[in-house]
């Protein structure tokens, strides 16, 4: 029980007296205008929240794909079955998330939330890495875009069959419950050049880690399959890293964020250096190794610890 209020002469005021009119939000000539603006802003904030959530999940799943891929030991056209299965199941999940994301970032909203869409870089990193492990080439932006669009639309189709748990889906999905939509009508996610480039920047780090572990464990530099009889020596990952390094050195600095660009470029340079050293070690000391010798893995790991993130 709190103390009672008293009037100026000290007499306690009755508590059960008529309550003062319920405190109203002060309304004035401008209140309706602010209420309209509030609704608009709320819509924006809510949408951003949904995007951030989906984006975070996609990032986590992409990272898991990358971890799976790091368990691959050599470049060949088929990923080991167990790893391929892991990748596929993650991709299926990503696909669903992309489908929920797509209607939110159509048209003008694509760039409005681009800062909340870091997940696309991460996804690019995972997809380019998988592609490299299978083909030993860098997938181009033009080839990758349709893949991401495809993933997005597939996610929408599979999700359609289920009961939609997410009731907060907005206008973009209004047409969906109609008979099975053709994929062409579904909103999709366009991959910007920046998403692609920054994803590929990160790819160099993954290639460096892959080069390090695969060399350490197999005792030979990851390379393509020997090209038939009498062909050239197959390309090794050292050459690929060099080419990627040169690729970025020759590109003009991306103007979106020079700071970011230089930071990523510097990391790329370091990765190239590390793989170079690896190649050198193989040539110089490799011959001294007895057949079947496996290096101490703990030292192999040290080199990359700072590169993990």
């Amino acid at each position: 029980m709190s103390g009672s209020k008293r009037d100026w002469s000290g007499n306690a005021k009755r508590r059960d007296g008529p309550k003062p009119a319920q405190k109203q939000v002060v309304r004035n000539a401008y209140t309706p205008m602010f209420e309209l603006l509030r609704n608009e802003l709320d819509e924006h904030h809510d949408r951003r929240e949904r995007i951030v959530k989906a984006s975070r999940d996609i990032t986590a799943l992409s990272k898991k794909i990358i971890f799976s891929l790091q368990r691959v030991r050599k470049i060949e056209s088929q990923l080991p079955a167990n790893i391929q299965a892991e990748v596929d199941s993650r991709l299926a999940e990503i696909s669903k998330l992309l489908a929920t994301l797509a209607p939110e970032i159509q048209g003008i909203n694509r760039y409005r939330y681009s800062r909340n869409l870091m997940c696309l870089e991460e996804l690019v990193e995972a997809l380019t890495f998988a592609h490299y492990l299978k083909t030993q080439t860098l997938i181009s932006h033009a080839e990758l875009s349709p893949i991401v669009e495809d993933l997005t639309q597939k996610g929408a189709v599979t999700r359609d069959g289920e009961v939609m748990g997410d009731a907060s889906d907005t206008a973009g999905n209004a047409a969906e419950p109609a008979e099975a939509p053709t994929t062409e009508d579904l909103p999709t996610i366009s991959l910007t050049e920046d998403d692609y480039l920054y994803g590929v920047f990160d790819l160099t780090g993954e290639m460096m880690r892959f080069a390090t572990t695969s060399t350490a464990l197999t005792g030979s530099m990851a390379s393509g399959q020997a090209a038939g009889a009498g062909g050239d020596e197959p390309r090794t990952i050292v050459q690929d890293m060099h080419e990627l390094g040169t690729f970025f050195e020759m590109l003009p600095v991306g103007p979106e964020s020079r700071f970011q660009w230089y930071k990523k470029l510097e990391v790329t340079r370091q990765s190239v250096r590390k793989v170079e050293t690896l190649g050198y070690d193989r040539i110089v000391r490799g011959s001294e190794r007895p057949e079947g010798w496996v290096p101490d893995l703990s030292t192999g790991d040290q080199g990359q610890r700072d590169e993990l993130e």
Binding site: V25, V26, T31, F34, R38, D42
Partner: peptide
Amino acid sequence: AGFQVLNLK
């Protein structure tokens, strides 16, 4: 008072 109406992040 008007600005109080907004839900700000």
